[in-house]
Amino acid sequence: METLEYTDVNAHIVARCKEGDRKAQYELYKLYSKSMFNVSMRITNDYTEAEDVLQESFLSAFRELHTFKGDSTFGSWLKRIVINKSITKVRSRRLQVEPMDDFQDFAEEAPEYDQEDMDYKVETIKKAIQSLPDGYRVVLTLYLLEGYDHGEIAEILSISEATSKSQYSRARKKLLSLMQEQSFFS
């Protein structure tokens, strides 16, 4: 029920945005800029790039609003735009420094940690996410934080569902080991 209500409220603002109502556009910006910025921050891991992504995403969302049919919420539609643009940024950045090999396997496997012993802290997790390699970080945040399942992640990244699963499991291990290191040093 809550989802329905939420869609309706947005539908009203979205309709006004379609007519180029600047105030309605600002309403949507206020509503979504922070969460969308954080989505992009997690993928790009770069403040300036995340800002670029945010600006480009809102611009193309307002430009392409007529293609938004309302079969999803405006928020999830916008989120897909933000994610796609963020991934493009990460990929072009990787292209500049190394040959494109998005989801290479990392040979050294992190040792297993008994996660039941682990006391999770938001801060520690956030820091560990930021130190993950790009490929790991993208899959992990899409799954853990953005709430996509492996089928959806496979589609977003044009990889197979199996790759998404194995990539997530490796990323998760790496994350736990990074968290372990952090708590060791702190």
């Binding site: 922070k34 954080n38 403040y47 800002e51």
Partner: peptide, 14 residues
């Protein structure tokens, strides 16, 4: 987890 905020005048650019 959503702790970052974009610069306040980003909307003006948009």
């Amino acid at each position: 987890f959503d702790t970052f905020t974009p610069r306040p005048d980003l909307w003006q650019d948009i």
